[in-house]
Design a protein around this nucleic acid. Structure first.
Length: 825
RNA sequence: GCCGGAGUGACGGAAUUGGUAGACGUAGGGGACUUAAAAUCCCCCGAUAGAAAUAUCGUACCGGUUCGAGUCCGGUCUCCGGUACCA
């Protein structure tokens, strides 16, 4: 046996053995309890960073622990391999995206293996491969058949410099992520998925997910943005048109002093065409369209607008109020038009101040001077100036006014969401082709399922300019209509890559199936994901899309769970010197560099030890060295045991506790097993689990040098130490396990140690003695000593005697085995 | 602005139901071993006063509940994250 910890040799040796033995392959065993551990699969950029290492180390500890704890564990890995970087590499360097991506996948696969992660590689998927995107297309067609996919014209994010549509996630603070140009809007015909139809379910089901962080649930709740209110119809004076507005404050209907349309509202053109207002209004509309997203949504900006020459009639009091257009009203929320109540809405108040419009209070809010409003009064209050509703509490009035509107047929109760339908078209090459065909006769028709996959053509030019790259293919666009057989053409946009990642966890359950998207029996066995782990940056997008997909799959009868992820752990960022690791800051520490210097086990151990998983992790080079030192200590301890203590012993016999030192060590062994079981199995506090193992090792060193060796006991300590340490640092523990002469592999051990509760019962306990809640002295007494005896013993202490002398003892509190508190005056 | 979360030694962090604040690790100090250094091992390490025993203070700040508060309640400040003209 090597006398020093040669991590390079050890890690290389075991990685090869695990690969040769296909050590982490799992199969369905329908009688066995399963556990699904999933880490968010990476985009194959080519290089693993510390965030990945953290993510996968957390998952690996859980997977290895659950396996040892007797579960049938599925722990898969794959590649979210469609996306922009591959295409940019093609534009820049002329490498085909497929080649670039494949090389990266191979590199990263090796990097993952070099960390000793326990993946079942037989289940590997790559979203850019036809055997995956074939089923992506199949799913899209199911959505289409269910009426959940549709095409429509709408304004989308457009980067004028890159000449392309951008995904929402590529718009950062209103600017293009690549070239920093402010993003504008452009009208394009695009495919959408009807996620809004699932808004209520997506919202309500959040309550069925106690294993999700509240933070993420709140973020989704806000994103869905449900609000209750009413639609109210206003007659436009001198026309036969009605203007419908949405409001959450129907109680303020009597305070309406003007109306506002969004500049994009269809009525704007219709009403102003040929009037004296047309020119000014058109100029305003053009200006609004020209404005970037940041300019338009800037809060500090003064309100602007134009009168369009028409008036509405307020249905509650017959009052005529002017109609304006303003860019503070958005076309894509509510009805694109509002009733303005400046007395009770700050934006309306600001607008009214600029245009000199009336401000009429209709809710008397306590402690507000209604005759001299400095800002909108938004709080609760009593209705005034509101006809039959005057005198009511305004919350009450909301319900009553809605009732009245419905009875009169001029309004109705309405629920609105901020959530929009999901725009999934991309003018990109490197994504799943949308399997739809346009026929002059039949319109949009899905490709026949037997013709799937619709393959990505290879004869495409990558320029980064102009239309979708697929238009440059000679072979792709022209086809025949799946319906009538006449010449037709294919959709040339590809799918948002977020679709690919919305169901990959289902495909893992049956990754090789070429007949079906997956076998429902397998999916129903493995799903849902027991523990999902990933960065909080996916809190809304990916985690909501995946929930949406799962619900649709459920509705299609493909699986029996409505929610994909039972428990969610959002790991914190890895930072250094107070900032996120980034090239521009020059504070990047590469995993390869650490693995080279200290090994994968050290990297894993440090990253799990330095902070609890959901917190930010502050990278410290000294801290890494400390973790390495600990592993050297473990190695040396067991090396000494094997070479100097154990000798040729193979049968250890029954453990007998002979003395205090034995008892202390036995206590520590059991306390450590208990602590690690709870911290890893329950609350995922790996940092405290590791610290307790460090304490055990410290204790074992002390025992080894000071106590008379009890070989069976010490052997028990060694065995359990290796088992509880294994999920964190699999290589060194596997090596030492083999050196100890075990025939089986440590990764095959499926009996997590039990702890002996009786070993944790101490003969004597330390009891704290307080005067008025302040620690004064300590007392050592037999376990479970009677209250009276404890109190008497405490009173007998010299210090306590002195403290009590001459004072009145008001009360004594005795908490068995813990504390005595004397209250004195 | 609104919605979350967090403030504990020099630093990362412990303290799981209200019961010894600072486990474990890092940095620092001292010692052993060594010709020396590294490595390793041992001891000390919240602040103030004191030679020490010890005393007082101490978990962002102010107040409250309690025999007892890092932990519970009310208020304030700071930092971080999300979101934002959503009617």
């Amino acid at each position: 046996m090597q006398d020093r910890y040669d991590f390079k040799a050890i890690e290389g040796k075991w990685q090869k053995i695990w690969a040769d033995e296909n050590a982490f392959r799992t199969t369905e065993d329908y009688d066995k309890k399963k556990y699904y551990v999933l880490e968010m699969f990476p985009y194959p950029s080519g290089k693993l960073h510390m965030g990945h290492v953290r993510n996968y180390s957390i998952g690996d500890v859980i997977a290895r622990f659950k396996k040892m704890d007797g579960y049938n564990v599925i722990h898969p890995m794959g590649w979210d391999s469609f996306g922009l970087p591959a295409e940019n590499a093609a534009i820049k360097h002329g490498i085909h995206p497929f080649v670039w991506t494949n090389d990266n996948i191979n590199d990263m696969h090796n990097q993952l293996n070099s960390l000793g992660l326990s993946y079942d590689w037989d289940r590997e998927v790559a979203t850019c491969k036809p055997d995956y995107y074939k089923w992506m297309q199949w799913i899209f067609i199911q959505f289409y058949k269910k009426g959940l996919a549709y095409k429509k014209d709408q304004a989308v994010n457009w980067c004028p410099d890159c000449q392309t549509v951008l995904a929402n996630e590529q718009v950062v603070d209103g600017c293009c992520e690549r070239c920093k140009t402010p993003v504008t809007k452009k009208y394009l015909s695009q495919w959408y998925l009807k996620i809004t139809e699932y808004a209520d379910r997506l919202l309500n089901n959040l309550d069925t997910l106690p294993g999700w962080p509240d933070k993420v649930k709140t973020m989704q709740k806000n994103w869905i943005g449900r609000s209750e209110g009413a639609e109210v119809s206003f007659k436009i004076d001198g026309t036969d048109k009605d203007l419908v507005v949405y409001t959450t404050r129907p109680d303020t209907l009597f305070g309406v002093t003007y109306m506002v349309l969004s500049p994009e509202h269809p009525y704007v053109k219709e009403l102003t065409a040929g009037t004296e207002y047309e020119e000014a209004v058109n100029a305003y509309v053009a200006e609004a369209a020209r404005k970037s997203e940041i300019e338009r949504t800037s809060l500090t900006k003064e309100k602007t607008g134009e009168f369009i020459g028409y008036y509405c009639v307020n249905p509650v009091n017959g009052k005529k109020v002017p109609i304006y257009i303003s860019d503070y009203v958005m076309m894509d929320y509510g009805t694109g038009a509002i009733m303005a109540v400046p007395a009770h809405d700050q934006r309306d108040f600001d607008f009214a101040k600029v245009f000199g419009l009336d401000i009429i209070p209709v809710v008397d809010v306590p402690d507000v001077d209604l005759d001299n409003l400095q800002e909108a009064a938004v709080a609760e209050g009593t209705m005034i100036n509101s006809g039959q509703f005057t005198g009511m509490n305004n919350r009450e009035a909301i319900k009553e006014i809605i009732k009245w509107l419905e009875a009169e047929g001029i309004g109705k109760k309405t629920v609105n969401y901020k959530l929009r339908d999901w725009l999934i078209s991309r003018q990109r090459y490197w994504g799943t082709p949308i399997p739809m065909v346009y026929c002059e006769e039949c319109g949009w028709v899905p490709e026949k399922e037997e013709n799937l996959p619709v393959l990505l053509p290879t004869d495409v030019k990558f320029t980064g300019k102009g239309d979708s790259p697929l238009t440059t293919s000679e072979t792709f666009k022209d086809t025949v209509c799946p319906c009538c057989g006449k010449p037709a053409h294919r959709e040339i946009d590809t799918m948002d890559t977020f679709l690919d990642s919305s169901w990959y966890f289902l495909r893992y359950c049956d990754a090789k199936n070429d007949k079906l998207v997956f076998d429902s029996k397998k999916v129903n066995y493995w799903m849902n994901v027991d523990q999902y782990i990933g960065g909080v940056e996916h809190a809304i997008l990916h985690l909501m899309y995946a929930r949406f997909f799962q619900m649709v799959m459920y509705d299609l009868g493909l699986c029996e769970y409505e929610e994909p992820f039972k428990n969610l752990l959002t790991q914190g960022m890895v930072i250094k010197d107070g900032a996120k690791m980034s090239k521009s800051l020059g504070n990047v520490v590469s995993p390869a560099e650490i693995q080279d210097k200290y090994g994968a086990d050290t990297a894993r151990l440090f990253i799990l030890f330095a902070a609890p998983p959901e917190k930010e992790l502050d990278w410290s080079d000294d801290g890494v060295a400390g973790s390495y030192r600990f592993l050297c200590r473990v190695y040396t301890l067991i090396y000494d045991y094997i070479t100097k203590i154990k000798g040729d012993t193979t049968e250890f016999g029954k453990i007998e506790i002979r003395n205090e030192a034995d008892k202390k060590l036995n206590y520590k062994i059991n306390a450590t097993v208990k602590k690690v079981s709870e911290d890893v199995g329950g609350r995922f506090n790996f940092n405290t689990a590791i610290s307790s193992i460090m304490e055990l090792v410290n204790e074992m060193y002390k025992y080894k040098s000071n106590a008379e060796m009890n070989l069976p006991l010490f052997n028990d300590a060694i065995t359990k130490l290796l088992i509880v340490l294994n999920p964190f640092v699999p290589h060194i523990t596997e090596e030492l396990w083999a050196e100890l002469g075990h025939e089986d592999r440590l990764y095959q051990v499926t009996s997590w140690p039990e702890f002996d509760e009786s070993a944790l019962v101490l003969d004597e306990v330390e009891i704290i003695v307080q005067i008025n809640g302040k620690l004064k002295d300590k007392l050592v007494l037999p376990n479970n000593t009677d209250k009276e005896v404890v109190e008497a013993a405490a009173k007998g202490l010299e210090k306590i005697k002195a403290e009590l002398d001459g004072k009145e003892l008001v009360k004594s509190i005795v908490v068995p085995n813990k504390i005595v508190n004397f209250v004195v005056r």
